[in-house]
Every structure is written in C-alpha cells, then in structure tokens.
Amino acid sequence: MTKIFFAVDVHGSTPVWRKWINVVNMYKVDVLILAGDLTGKAVVPIFRKDNEYEATIFNKKYTAKNEDELKKLQDIIENMAYYYAIMTKEEANEISKDPKKMDLLFKNAMIDRLRKWLDLLLEKVDTKNVITIVMPGNDDEQYIDETIKSYEDRSILYPLDKTITLPHNYELVSHEFVNPTPWRTPREAEEDKLYKIVEEKIKRSNVKDYSKAIFNFHCPPFNTNLDLAPKLDKNMKIVYVGGKPSMIHVGSTSIRKLIEKYQPVLGLHGHIHESYANDKIGNSIVLNPGSEYTEGILRGFFIEYDSEGIKNYWKIEG
C-alpha cells in the first residue's frame, strides 16, 4: 500500500509549510506533494534607523531594539504569510516609484523564502526514500520554477516538465494553469487554449494505462464540489440563502472535459480555497484540500492506493 499526502495553496505561509513537512514524521508517507501557489502576496518593509527597526502591520507599529527582537518581528511577519525586507524609508519610497525595483524586491523575497523552505524540506524529509514533489500554481511567477528545479539533484521533484512514475506504476501528470480569473494571475489560459495545452501534455506524457493515471492539475474541474466558491454580493459579502452561504461553480470546463475523456483514477486539484472537498467524475476520484493559509492551518488529503486502485482517502487539517 502506498500513501500520498497532498496539499496546495500555502501562499507564502511558513507555518503551513512546516506542518506539511511534519506530516511525514507523524504519519508514514511515501509520496509528499505540494501542488502550487507557493508564493505570498505582500512584502512588509522593516525600516532600519540607527540600531532600531520598525514595521507597521495592520496599522499596528512594531519596534525591535536588537537582533533578537528583529528575529521575532521577522517571525511575526512570516507567520502572517508576508515577506519582509529591511530597508530605509528612502529606499522604500524609491521602490514604490520604480516597478523594476518592486519586481526585484518580490523576486528576491519569494526566491529566498522558497530556498529556505526547500532547505528545511531536505533537512526534515528523507527525499531519497519519500517521493517529494513541489510545483508552482497559477499565482506563482515563472521565475520560481528554476529555484525548484535546482533542488532536483537532491530529489525534490519538479513535475511540470515530466511524467513522474509512482509506486505500482502509477503515473502523475501535472499542470499549473487555470482558467481566467478576475485577478490576472501569472498562469492563466482561456478555456479552449487550456484544453489544448493540457491535452497535449496528457498525450505527450505517454501514460499507458489511465486507470493508473493521476492528474495533478492545480485547476479544479467545473461543476463539482471542488470548485464551489461563495457567491459575493456587491459589498464583497457572502450571500446567504436559507442561512447557508450561496455557492457558485468557478472551475474549469476544460479540465472537467479532459477528466471525463481520459478517466484518470485520481484528480488532485487546488486553487479554490473554500472547496475542501472530494467528488467523482465518472470513475475518477477528484480531490481539493482547500486552504486556510491565512490562519496558518494546513489542509490536506491522504490517499492510499495499491496496484488495484485507490483504497482509501481522507482529509486532515491542523
């Protein structure tokens, strides 16, 4: 029996990343997957003046008078899934005026954090014996791919350019793009294009037996329990009907069609944080662990399978 642990959408949260790693030590896991949306959305500048440091988070001012206090301040920011950068106020003003400097600030922050995470992963997980897979999602800039790939020699696998063979000859095909979002994230494609590029990838993967194929697509299939997002009113407040939130489907029709067509044994998805759910499309089991990274909560799915198929799967959160 092989056991997979699958999580998504950490969005820069170090507590969630640590929890994901610790799962290996708490449960015996053979395959560890973190499938996309690794990077965060904001950088908090820590202002240096003489020997003191100062930062403002959610309108609350924090000061650090020595290196220990600075480390604590950095941890506070990191635990909120933000990045930090030490600079002067003049430098901050410069960055705010110059998009190239802003891009560089984010690039450095994202790559630094990712390296720190991957080093921690190597430290805590025996990647020689646990198949460890890390990939970007739609919200991640292209430049983080090289950082992940640079750890392949230490057995952290980047799955987007290859089909990964898992125990019992199961084959994992991965793709990170999603259908267009209102937020113009870095990896989006319109439905017809998405269908075309994902199907090409499936064909190129040379999967021999789709009853042993796992589709690791960040985007969830349309009209399932996996792609339900709360309906929002004009005030961005959740619409309640009969005391319950009214939900709408926002997944991809292309991904659904491809799952219907190829009928993989399993679909691993993410992207829609609210849909912590499982469902079935034909014979295919599809899963989305969702995400509560802002609260530092890890959500994931355990999947147990053998040569005959999926035996069991269950959610965990903590």
Partner: peptide, 10 residues
C-alpha cells in the same frame, strides 16, 4: 518624505 514611506508592498 520619510513619514510617507509605504508600510506594505503588494
């Protein structure tokens, strides 16, 4: 100038 430095970059 320094008083108006941004406190968060998005």
């Amino acid at each position: 100038m320094s008083q108006e430095a941004p406190t968060l970059f998005v």
